[in-house]
Amino acid sequence: MASWKKFTAIAALLSVVVGLTGCGAAPTTKIFEAFEKASSAEVNVTAALETLKTLEDKDEKQYINILDQGKTDNRNVQTLIDNTNKALEERKQAIEQVKVHLDDARSQMGELDKAIAKLKDEELKKQAEQAYTAYVKRYDTFKALHEKYGQWLEREQFIYDELKSQNTKLKSITTGISERNEVYRQVEELKTQFNDYTTQFNTLKSDFYKGAGLQVTKTEGNQDDNAEQQEG
C-alpha cells in the first residue's frame, strides 16, 4: 500500500519535471538563444568590415596619387591603377564575406514572432519585439547596402578604366566621378542607417535581457563560443 503511495508521488513529481523541461523551452529562452546565435554567427564580420575600411582608405590615397602622378602623362600611373583595381577586387570579396555571415546570422535568428507573442509580460514582449524589429530592419538595410556597394565598386572601376585609357577624356572622367560620388553618398547613408539599427539592436536586446532577469556579460564580438556553452 505504502509503495503505491510512493509510486503516485514519484509519478506526480516526474510529470511536473517533464512539464517544466520536456515540452519545449520557454519563449524567453528561445528568444535569448536566437538573439545570441545570430549575434555570435557574426563574429567574423568584424574582420571583414575592418578589411573594407582599410581598402577604402587605401583607395582614397591611391586615387590622389594617380591624379597627381598622371597629371602630364597617364603612362606614369598604369601600375598604380592596376594595384588599385586589385584592391577593388579585394573589396568585392570582403563585402561578399560580410554578406555570407550576415545571411547565416539571419537564418540563425529565424522567425521569432510566435515566440514573442507567447511572452506573458507585456513590457518584456515590447522589448523583445523592438529588438527583433531592429535586427530585421538592420538585415534588410544590409541587403540594400550590399547591392549599392556593388554599384559603387562598378563606378570606381569605370573611373580607373577611364584614367588608364590612352584616349581618356576629362569630360568622361568628370561624369564618371560625379556618378561615383552619388552612389558613394547613398552607400554612406545606408551605412549610417545600418549602424543605427546595430546600436538599437545591441541596446534593445540588452534591455530585454535585463527585463527577463538574465545576468549577462558583453563581448565585442571576438568570442567564438555560443552563449549556451557558457553556462556555469
Partner: peptide, 19 residues
C-alpha cells in the same frame, strides 16, 4: 551569460575630387 554585440560599418572613403 556571455552575449555578443553585433558590429557596425566604418567609413574611410570620401567624395572623389574631379581633376
Amino acid at each position: 551569460l556571455i552575449v555578443t554585440e553585433v558590429a557596425t560599418f566604418a567609413s574611410a572613403a570620401k567624395e572623389k575630387e574631379i581633376p
